[in-house]
Design a protein around this nucleic acid. Structure first.
Ligand SMILES: [Mn+2]
Ligand SMILES: [Mn+2]
Ligand SMILES: [Mn+2]
Ligand SMILES: [Mn+2]
Lengths: 257, 257
DNA sequence: GTACTATCTTCGTCACGCCTAACATTGTTG
DNA sequence: CAACAATGTTAGGCGTGACGAAGATAGTAC
């Protein structure tokens, strides 16, 4: 009747499984659980003993298996985490149902509480904010599909191509025109406008993911200003200053984002 | 010289640690690693042997520790996952640095490849799309802080309060006015407009998280139409039909989002 | 060179979580 | 009510990952 230490990922999955099976068939049998989790029957016995010791399931050998009230509460919490992650993956990131399900069921065991709450808020928010919403997610989808020939909204295209803004939004652009990757300081972030040069060098840069619209951050600059360590699309990338100068960019605002 | 099976979460963390230590001090010593990971010195020896067996570290007893080329590549991949998650948490979800760091370092070991890529795309996208961007994230932040007195942009407020739209956007609202939670069908989603009633019942609904602007989905309806299972803010919630009728809502579009 | 200290390894132990094989129970069915 | 198949349990083993205690090594101090 006390949870003592936190449950292992494995035991959380057992609880989750029992809850779902019981929701269908009222009680769970060992076989149902082993089928659902794809483990050997004897593993289930072991898990049930561990869960019974913690007062989370009612279990006696050869008897039917049910969750205690406390077990039910814990199972519901696991399921909440599972569904929150899955919903975010499907609704916001447009991940396919199966991957979302599998990924959620792994991550649910390790995600910190405060991050989980934010995921949930985020899904709500995206559905509420009129600047976001359906439209916005569809744009995100086509944005993903468009790599490396990335499609942006017309407004973005304008921005990326460095034409002066007509909308009095904010000073999103510092100075359009001739800024290159070689001009950036550590910590600055920029959108790629164009890769100059030709032949081998040009091709090599493109192959590295240097396509218009991509966001690039300067991570580090070596003592003598060469080479420079960039990050784009999650990858680190080291360029000679000569190469960096071939890449025209539009600097993004400092600070967050 | 062969990775054979996938590395365990623990071994990935060792690689990550060695990489970072080596980045600072050129070589790693056992002590550095045990300090960084908060683990006993003897555990490090064990891990190093396992990593050496897989050809990921150069290791001989009492000798200096370095990563092999393959080990370096694997470490870089782990770090990519770590940073992608962390950046998403910090830049998009506005999670504090430490929680983001810790959460990322747990989740990095279980996140499916395709979901990771989407996270990375997402951060890029948010920074690129003019309908999103800094503004949008700031709104998300105040949205989070505002629970339960949620602040929306003026446009959203209008929508939530059910006034007919003036902008010819889309038919986002089905029929404003008198739709309640009791009128929804399974799978439908709605924004909460107002909780009617008074006294105990009213208070109880508010306590359950029924505040204006929240998104509610109908998960299940019992055989005789009572009770109804809802989901809001990641929680499941079961209401009597009587109670559900007290909650005025605005239906969201069918399908995705 | 010996002594001392910081560092590292070895060894024995434990807790998980899964497996297989052998054994036990249950409930059906002729 | 046997005989049987289905289901569940036990025992024994393997791999991982951590720990502490005790012994080994390397580098510095005298
Ligand atoms: Mn799971
Ligand atoms: Mn799950
Ligand atoms: Mn980690
Ligand atoms: Mn990490």
């Amino acid at each position: 009747m006390s949870e003592s230490l936190a449950l292992s990922a494995s035991l959380e999955d057992y609880l989750e499984a029992i809850f779902h099976i019981a929701a269908d068939k009222k009680v769970a049998r060992s076989k149902d659980i082993s089928n659902r989790l794809g483990v050997n029957n004897s593993s289930v016995t072991g898990a049930l003993r561990a869960l019974a010791e913690r007062g989370l399931v009612n279990y006696a050998p050869y008897d039917l298996i049910t969750l205690t009230d406390e077990g039910k509460a814990v199972a519901e919490d696991v399921i909440r985490r599972h569904e929150a992650l899955r919903d975010f993956f499907v609704r916001v990131l447009s991940i396919d149902a199966q991957t979302a399900e599998e990924g959620a069921c792994k991550m649910e065991h390790v995600i910190p509480q405060s991050i989980l709450e934010r995921f949930i808020e985020f899904v709500d928010f995206v559905e509420l904010c009129p600047r976001a919403g359906t439209d916005w997610i569809q744009k995100f989808e086509s944005f993903c599909k468009g790599v490396p020939d990335r499609q942006l909204c017309s407004e973005c295209i304008t921005l990326v191509e460095g034409k002066p803004e007509s909308k009095p939004d904010e000073g999103r652009e510092r100075q359009a025109g001739t800024i290159t990757l070689g001009d950036l300081k550590i910590g600055q972030r920029a959108r790629l406008v164009k890769v100059r040069g030709q032949g081998e060098v040009h091709k090599r840069l493109i192959d590295m993911g240097m396509v218009p619209g991509v966001v690039i951050a300067v991570e580090r600059i070596a003592p003598l200003g060469d080479p420079i360590d960039f990050k784009l699309r999650g990858y680190h990338l080291s360029l000679r200053k000569e190469e960096a100068k071939l890449v025209t960019v539009a600097v993004l605002e400092e600070g967050r984002v």
